[in-house]
Amino acid sequence: MNLSKSWTIAQKDFSIFRRKRSIVYSLLAFPMGIALGLSAVLWLVVHRGDATYAQLGPLMDAFAFFFTISTTTISTSLAAYSIVGEKAEKSLEPLLATPTTDGEILLGKVIAAFLPTIVSTLMGAVVFMIIVDALSRPDLGYFFYPNWTVAVFLLVAAPLACLFSVELNVLVSSRVTDVRTAQQFGGLIVLPFAGLYVAGELQIIILDSTTLLKISAILLLADAVLFFLSRATFQREAILTQWR
């Protein structure tokens, strides 16, 4: 596999994403919305005297999981565009005519959706941590963030969840014929992650760094399986002859 070709495809997609306002807005708005919204919730709870920042520690850790969910949501719109968007613009045929393998194309599409998602999510997370640290430090006497749990959330679980979402969306988008359908199917990926968060809040599972690492190991395995699955099921011929 020629990685430079995958990177070339990803760079081309980055350039196109920059021109599409809906994609730029979704990349910026969602993580920033989470950062500002969750910070506001914490401030409101403390401001009303319902709890102190010290009491909210577990919740503040759990809130970081929203950024993991964020990666699955944002990447859906990018990844759904990846194959179906090319087909919609009729640009897939010349791309498939180049001496580029299925694996190189798919990897390029995965990188194109993965990197912007992770960068924007980490930017939102940093904003969130700075705001919460600024609010909570007078009460706590130390900076709550970063800590190990959040580090595992953001640097291990979030990228793997993002990769899982991207690969699933690329797989879906190579099997359906329009962007909207791809996004609808791909959007379902958020459900298991939302379920994990709810299970954590209901204390069915404890979302500590150990649990997160176990979940991450499963995601890593799933990512590898999905990549080979998407490569095995990527059928140039069906894409060219059956899509309308």
Partner: peptide
């Protein structure tokens, strides 16, 4: 190959389109 639909990237410049394929 020049397919019946030109299949160019409309959000890229002419130069960038050609450069992309040249790299591939």
């Amino acid at each position: 190959l020049v397919p019946d639909n030109v299949g160019l990237y409309e959000d890229l410049s002419a130069y960038r389109n050609l450069d992309f394929f040249g790299k591939l």
